[in-house]
Simulated scan of single mutants.
Amino acid sequence: MVLTVPTFTAGMVLSLSLIMAIGPQNAHVLRMGLQRQHLWITVAVCALADIVLIGLGVLGLAQLGGLSDKLQGALIGAGVLFLGVYGWQAFQRFRQPVLQAPAGQGAVTGPAPTSRRQAVLSALAFSWLNPHAWLDTAVLIGTASLAYGEASRSFGLGAAAGSVVWFLVLGCAAFWLGRRLNSLRIWRLLDGAVALMMWGTAAWLLASLV
């Protein structure tokens, strides 16, 4: 494998530019950080899931010409269903927050707890049932890597490093905010914004099928 700094850097820059937009995956990491529940597990799963998709794109999918129309349609359909359901759940939390109080106290402090298994499955779903993640990582990064010939794997390593850096930074930011923001009003605003984002993304994906 040819490992060069310019190629590695190019892969990292492209990865960061694609992933930095606030989408369903990033919104989920922020929510887990604000909840102060399984944040670092979520960060690790999202980063590893992106690395798998980047590897798939660089090592094989780009050479195959990207996703087939049927596979892309099935992926978009699954993504729309998932985003619609998750958006509905966020909307229900917006309408009627379900919060927990510390033992022996009456004040609310945050959302009901999430199990480690639920956190891992949610992170995987936001990573692998999100068509944007597939298009940005497996397709776009995989296709871009072809321009670097024998150094394409170096480009892919840079892209993977960019994903890890981004999720670590996002996780740190979410952790910092989670220690300072803890009120019913903020949670309602967050859930309302998440519901609109999920439904908006689902509508955009449906429109892309027409």
Rank of each mutant, 00 (worst) to 15 (best):
T4A: 11
M12W: 01
L16D: 08
P24G: 08
Q25V: 14
Q25R: 07
H28K: 13
H28F: 15
L34Q: 12
Q35V: 02
R36N: 14
H38A: 03
I41V: 15
A44E: 02
V45Y: 00
V45K: 01
C46P: 00
A47Q: 01
L48G: 12
L48D: 05
A49Q: 01
I51N: 00
V52A: 12
G55C: 05
L56H: 09
G57L: 03
G57H: 02
S68F: 04
D69C: 08
L71C: 14
Q72A: 15
I76S: 05
V85A: 11
Y86Q: 11
G87I: 04
W88K: 12
Q89D: 13
A90G: 06
Q92V: 05
Q92P: 04
R93I: 00
P97Y: 06
V98D: 15
V98I: 15
L99A: 11
Q100K: 08
A103N: 14
A103D: 15
G104Y: 05
G106Y: 07
V108R: 12
T109I: 15
G110T: 02
R116V: 13
A119W: 12
S122Q: 10
A123M: 06
S127K: 00
W128M: 10
L129K: 07
P131F: 00
A133W: 03
T137V: 09
I141L: 15
T143H: 04
A144V: 05
L146Q: 10
A147V: 06
E150Y: 09
G156I: 07
A159W: 01
A161R: 01
V164D: 00
L170E: 07
A173L: 14
R179S: 13
S183T: 14
W187P: 11
R188G: 01
V194E: 05
A195L: 09
M197P: 04
M197I: 12
W199R: 02
A202Q: 04
W204S: 15
W204L: 14
W204H: 14
L205D: 03
L206R: 00
V210C: 07
